[in-house]
Amino acid sequence: MAWLAVKARSIVINGRFLKDTNSAVNAVALNLTKALITSADENGWKVHLAVPKPLENRAMQLSRSVIAMGQSTGAVWDQVYMPKLREVGVPVGLFNSVPLRGSGYVTMLHDAHVFRTPQSYRFPARKWRQLTSRRAGASGNRILTVSEHSKQALLALGIGHADTIGVVPNGPSTVVSTKPDTAVLKRLELATGAPFCLGFSSLLPHKNVAFLIDVFRDQRLADIPLVLVGNATSKDFERIGLTVPSDVIFAGRCPDAELAALYQAAQTVLIPSLEEGFGLPALEAMYFGKHPIVSPYGALPEVVGKAGYVVHDMRPSDWARYIAKICTGHVTARDCPRQQASRFTWNAAAQRVWEHLEGWGF
C-alpha cells in the first residue's frame, strides 16, 4: 500500500465522525478537521483522513488524501484500523474515541461529563466512555480538550498530566454565518420588537433546564417569553413532574437559519448548566452581539469573560432579577460580546493543535 510510505510530519484524523455530523461533538470534529486541512501546508504538516469505506465519498469532499479501510462504521472500526495507521502518521481522534491497543494517539476529550455527571449517560455508554477516557490519558498518549476547565477536570480525575493535555477552544457552528429566517418568529407567535429569551431544551440533568423553567414562574418575567430550542418538549417535562408556565415556548429542533433568527432577535441567551466542557451557545450568542446569562459552572465563565453575566447564586429569583434587568435595559456596561467571541475561531483552534503537536515532539 503506497500510503504506508508517508510518516514524517503527518497526522491521520479518524474521520468516522462523518457518519453523523449533527451531534455537537461530531460537528466540532468536522469544523476542526476542515481548519487543520486548510492550514496544514503552511505549518509544515500533511493531513490524511481515515474512514470506513462507506464514508469514502464524504471524506473525498473534505480531503485529497483519504485512506478508506473496512466496512464497519461503528466504534469497532477505531479499535481495528486506527492502530494500523500509526505507520502513516500521528493518529488523531477528535470525538472522544481512542484505540485501547498501543500508544502514540492524540485524542480530543471534549469534557469530563461522563465522570462528573454520570447520570446523564446510559450504563453501557458511560462505562465505555470512562474506559476510553482513561485510555486517552495513558502513557505515550496525548489529550486535546476544549477549555482550561475541562483540562483541570481531567487532571483532577487522574487522566493525563499537565504537560500531556493541550487546550484547543472551539470555534462557532455554521449558524453564525447563516442567513436568518425570520419566519420562525411568526411561527412561534413572538411579537415584533418585544423582548424574549432564548434557551436550549434538554432532559439531560446537567443541562439544568428544569431550573430555567422554574425561573420563568417569577412574576417579574410575566411578559417575557422563554423560547427553548431542542428535542425535549413540554410533555417531556410534564412527565417528570414539572408544570410548564404558559410563557415557555418549545420551538423544537430548528435549522440553522431559524436558530440564527432567534439568536438575532432574542434579548439574551440563558445557559444554567451545572457542567459544560465549553458552552457553544454562549459563544454563538456573543457572535450575534448578545450578552449571555450563564451559571458559574464548567467553562461558561471562561468562555463569556466579561461579555456575559455570570449568576453565582443559583436561585430562580436571582436569575429572574438578572433577566428582568437585561430585558428592560437596566444593566451595567459589559465588554463587547462580538469582541470576546472573535477570540474563538476554527483557524485559531487549528493553530493551537499544531502548536501542541510541535510541543509534544511529534
Score class of each variant (00 low, 15 high):
residue 119 Q to E: 11
residue 241 G to R: 01
residue 122 R to C: 01
residue 241 G to H: 01
residue 55 L to H: 09
residue 5 A to G: 01
residue 295 S to W: 15
residue 282 A to T: 04
residue 319 W to T: 01
residue 306 K to Q: 07
residue 308 G to M: 04
residue 203 L to M: 07
residue 225 P to G: 15
residue 82 M to W: 09
residue 265 A to Q: 14
residue 4 L to A: 13
residue 141 N to M: 11
residue 186 K to V: 04
residue 97 S to H: 15
residue 17 F to R: 05
residue 14 N to V: 04
residue 358 E to V: 05
residue 24 A to Y: 13
residue 267 Q to A: 04
residue 158 G to M: 14
residue 157 L to G: 06
residue 127 K to H: 07
residue 81 Y to S: 01
residue 337 P to E: 04
residue 63 S to A: 03
residue 320 A to C: 03
residue 273 S to V: 03
residue 106 V to L: 14
residue 56 E to Y: 02
residue 63 S to L: 00
residue 240 I to D: 01
residue 339 Q to D: 11
residue 107 T to A: 13
residue 160 G to F: 09
residue 262 L to I: 02
residue 87 E to T: 02
residue 26 N to H: 15
residue 237 F to M: 01
residue 98 V to N: 07
residue 82 M to H: 09
residue 208 N to L: 03
residue 256 D to F: 13
residue 335 D to N: 00
residue 284 E to A: 15
residue 111 D to K: 08
residue 33 T to C: 12
residue 54 P to D: 13
residue 267 Q to K: 05
residue 26 N to V: 04
residue 152 Q to H: 15
residue 200 F to L: 11
residue 106 V to Q: 10
residue 147 S to P: 03
residue 303 V to Q: 12
residue 16 R to P: 08
residue 95 F to L: 06
residue 80 V to S: 06
residue 186 K to L: 08
residue 79 Q to Y: 09
residue 293 I to V: 13
residue 121 Y to N: 04
residue 25 V to T: 15
residue 251 A to Q: 06
residue 36 L to A: 04
residue 55 L to T: 03
residue 76 V to Y: 07
residue 208 N to I: 01
residue 117 T to V: 05
residue 152 Q to E: 15
residue 83 P to E: 09
residue 231 N to Y: 12
residue 29 A to I: 08
residue 254 C to D: 04
residue 164 T to K: 14
residue 123 F to D: 11
residue 269 V to R: 13
residue 317 S to G: 03
residue 343 R to A: 11
residue 96 N to T: 08
residue 300 L to K: 06
residue 312 H to P: 00
residue 87 E to G: 02
residue 304 V to K: 11
residue 96 N to D: 14
residue 76 V to G: 05
residue 138 A to N: 06
residue 18 L to R: 06
residue 199 G to K: 05
residue 148 E to L: 09
residue 217 R to Q: 11
residue 159 I to R: 10
residue 217 R to H: 10
residue 47 V to Q: 00
residue 20 D to I: 07
residue 297 Y to P: 05
residue 253 R to G: 05
residue 177 S to H: 11
residue 104 G to V: 09
residue 325 K to F: 03
residue 326 I to Q: 05
residue 24 A to S: 15
residue 227 V to G: 10
residue 44 G to V: 06
residue 335 D to W: 00
residue 233 T to F: 10
residue 146 V to P: 02
residue 106 V to C: 12
residue 226 L to T: 12
residue 104 G to K: 10
residue 100 L to W: 13
residue 154 L to D: 05
residue 156 A to D: 07
residue 1 M to D: 11
residue 55 L to Q: 10
residue 201 S to I: 10
residue 357 L to N: 08
residue 49 L to S: 02
residue 270 L to R: 08
